[in-house]
């Protein structure tokens, strides 16, 4: 069976950047947000790689990447992603901030997905990250899925096995390092991916060239998303006060340190 896989993926600050909130006219924002290097959200990246593998193994399948962010940043991030796997970009213009409202982002994503020409819901798999490194809510995908009428939803997915009968066996992370195994009759379904187990695909210049043909037109066509933060009021956004008075123990032997730690563990 072939699939139409739509991967929802935001862009987030490169993971090692120093982040600081500031109050902007439109609500909280990150200091120097436009200057921070950005990457595709790490969980959504896994979703994209999983989508590419699934599409590769199911001839006739196609992958779209739906992403909302400032156009210049989206363009930049796409140049690091587009050499990895084949996809067609659907771009939405708007802030990539974690402080945007999940429900409004979900509405924009659902609308963009519905507008994909030739979309066949009987083949539709909506992928994304189970959380993001920005809002970190784990809520957007479900709401987008509801708007698309998808009632078979899975979160914290680490593995998807497509059966010959069109069914999908899905492993979701649950408490205690365990996985719940479910079987879904087939598309349409929505999967929020955890990290899975695929390594990052290698850069392939030919894939880059092929993706590129549609990338710039997609960016040029990017529609602005309505993100007003209606009804939402931030009272404060602060960095945690986490400075501790660290006692530095330099001159103790391993035996003495071990004794001290053993006592500390037991108390």
């Amino acid at each position: 069976m072939d699939y139409q896989i739509v991967v929802c993926a935001g862009i987030v600050p490169d993971p090692l950047q120093t982040l600081e909130p500031v109050a902007a006219a439109t609500g909280p924002a990150l200091k120097n947000e436009m200057m921070l290097p950005a990457v595709l959200d790490p969980w959504a990246s896994h979703a994209l790689y999983e989508a590419a593998i699934l599409a590769k193994n199911a001839p006739g399948s196609k992958v779209w990447l739906v992403s909302l962010g400032p156009k210049a940043k989206l363009q930049q991030v796409m140049m690091t992603v587009a050499q990895k796997v084949p996809f067609e970009l659907v771009a939405l213009e708007g802030p990539a901030s974690g402080f945007t409202e999940a429900a409004e982002v979900a509405a924009a994503l659902a609308e963009a997905i519905q507008a994909i020409p030739g979309l066949d819901k009987s083949k539709l798999l909506v992928f994304g990250g189970w959380e993001s490194a920005s809002r970190g809510a784990g809520a957007t995908l479900q709401m987008a899925g509801e708007r698309l009428g998808i009632t078979e939803q899975f979160q914290g997915v680490d593995q998807l096995v497509a059966g010959a009968d069109g069914s999908l066996e899905i492993l979701e992370r649950i408490e205690g390092g365990r996985h719940q195994v479910s079987k879904c009759a087939g598309p349409p379904a929505l999967l929020g991916w955890a990290t899975g187990s695929l390594p990052e695909p290698k850069n392939n210049p030919q894939i880059g060239m092929a993706n590129m043909r549609a990338l710039m037109p997609a960016l040029q066509k990017a529609k602005p998303a309505k993100l007003a933060g209606e009804g939402l009021k931030f009272l404060s956004v602060t960095l945690p006060k986490q400075l501790r008075a660290t006692q530095i123990v330099k001159d103790k032997s391993p035996d003495a340190i071990a004794k001290e730690i053993a006592e500390w563990i037991k108390t």
Binding site: A102, A103, A137, G138, L141, Q142, G156, E172
Partner: peptide, 21 residues
């Protein structure tokens, strides 16, 4: 994990909003 998976969708069905974590 069970409520995290479903409650955002329920919020959408009920026309509400959700905060997680």
């Amino acid at each position: 994990s069970r409520w995290n998976r479903v409650l955002p969708g329920v919020a959408q069905r009920c026309g509400g909003r959700i905060d997680s974590h």
